[in-house]
Amino acid sequence: MTDQAFVTIKNAAKSYGSLEVLKDINLTVSRGQIVAIIGPSGSGKSTLLRAINELDPLSSGEVWLEDVQVNKKLPHRQYEAHVNHVRQNIGMVFQHFNLFPHLTVRGNITLAPRMLKGLSEAEADRLAEEQLAKVGLSEKIDEYPSRLSGGQKQRVAIARALAMKPKVMLFDEATSALDPELVEEVNLVMKQLAEEHMTMIIVTHEMDFAASVCDRVLFMDQGVVVEEGPPSVIFQNPAHERTRNFLRKHLSR
C-alpha cells in the first residue's frame, strides 16, 4: 500500500507564451508520503503545485490522483464537472489564506461540505467543530476572519481544506506571509497532519521545516527538478552545484 503511486505527474510541461515555466517534470508521490518542493523564486514551484489541482493547467503531460487522471481532456461541460469533482479530493492551502471574509469561521468550513456533499447543518457543524479542535481554534468558530491573526487564519484555512476529507494536501508557502512569531503554530498543525500520515506536497522556503517533516525533497530550478532525495541527502550532501548554491543562501539565514 505505502509504495503505491498516489499522485503521479508525467512529463509535465507548461509555457506562458514563449516562457517555459515547467520542462518535462516527473514526480510520483505515494500514499502518506510528504514531499517538499524547494527552489529559487520563479523556478516554477507554485506552477507545478497548481497544476496538480488544475488551477494552472499544464500545456502537456499528465496528472493522476490514484487511478483518476486529473487533467483529462474532455468537452467543456464534462471537463468542468470532472475538475470540480476531483478537486474535492485535493486540499490546497495558499500563502494568503484566501478565507472568505463575508463568512464566519464556521461558514468558511461548512460551505463546501454542505454545498457539495449535501451535509445537513448539524452534520456540517459537527464537522466544523471537529476540524477546528484539530487546529486548536474551537473558540473562534463564530468569528469573522477579519478578527483573526494571520496564524489563526491559516489554521482555519487548513481546517477548511481538511473538512472536505481530501486525499492529498497541497501547501504553497503556507507560512511565508506570516510574522515570524506566528509561523510555529502553523508548522505544528502541519506536523500533526504528517503524524496522521496525510499525503502532502509542500512548497516552502523553510529548510528546517522541510528537513524535519518531509520524506523527500525536490529541488527545482528554471522549470526542472534538478535533484531529489531524502532530506538528509539534499540538505547535507547535494549532488549538484545549483543545489549547493541555493542552500548556501538559504541555510545561512
Binding site: 470540480n84 478537486r87 474535492q88 495558499f94 460551505l111 463546501a112 457539495l116 472536505m164
Partner: peptide, 14 residues
C-alpha cells in the same frame, strides 16, 4: 481578489 475564486474553486465549487 483572485484568491477568492481560487479558494472556492479549489474546494470544488463550480
Amino acid at each position: 481578489d483572485k484568491g477568492q475564486y481560487e479558494g472556492a474553486r479549489t474546494l470544488g465549487l463550480s
